[in-house]
Amino acid sequence: MPTDSPAALEIRNLHKRFKDPAVNDLSLRVKAGEFYALLGPNGAGKTTTLRMVSGLLEADAGSVSVCGIDAFQDPVAAKRILAWVPDEPMVYDKLTPLEYLEFVAGLWSMEADYAQAKADGLLEAFGLGPHAGERCGGFSKGMRQKVALAGALIHEPRLIILDEPLTGLDAGSARQVKQVLTDLVSKGVTVIMTTHILEVAERMADRIGIIAQGRLVAEGTLNELRTRASAEGHSLEDIFLKIVGGGATSEALTEDTLKIGEKVA
């Protein structure tokens, strides 16, 4: 990976400890306009890492740079160009999707007419147009997820971070979301996504990072991962299980995995 290209996200030596270390000296770099999938077993530190990047959690040590802005030194500037979509859609039951988007546009100080045009376009793109005037309280999880995603996109972020965005979506909604994300990447937006649906990562991601025990243990394109894991012709699922162990638990890390981790470092 060339290191002189502009990085949408650069994490250096990030540490976070709760009772045990959750993120342990993690470093990674995501190029602008890249679709990056962050994989790992449950409790590996994916969400903790991304929450620190988004300013939702304080790091114990390390640095995070978003499009060249130090996210810890100037969080407001970093947040202006970043969007975070959690796995549980957080929308207000008492607001309609349109009101929600108006609220988000206000938070990001968007010009009203422009925001409205964007909102209309996003609601149509996600198939929420007919529900634009209904309160979100009666929506299914999938619809709420799409409202949250529309909220993340309305302020035109340069980096969008999604934590399990496809959980709970039906096939049609999942396709809509994937299409929107692909379009965003084609327009130069950087997308970082965690997912347990490995086929999605396999098909959509430019590069894939695998975290286990709070460390980046493997990273690269699908082919690079195949080569490093000596798993030519195998699916991402095979590679993933080989790297993190069959039980998919962080304790099940094998010596091979750590060797791959050394290659990354």
């Binding site: 607001l95 009101e99 206000g106 990001w108 009203a112 209904e134 309160r135």
Partner: peptide
């Protein structure tokens, strides 16, 4: 019984330009 709007709100109402503070208070 699902949570529904008492009356379906006009989906075409113009956005009001608000500062972040105004948006938060209004919300």
């Amino acid at each position: 019984v699902a949570e529904t709007s008492p009356k379906k709100r006009a989906a075409t109402r113009a956005f009001r330009g608000r500062s972040p503070l105004g948006a938060l208070v209004s919300k």
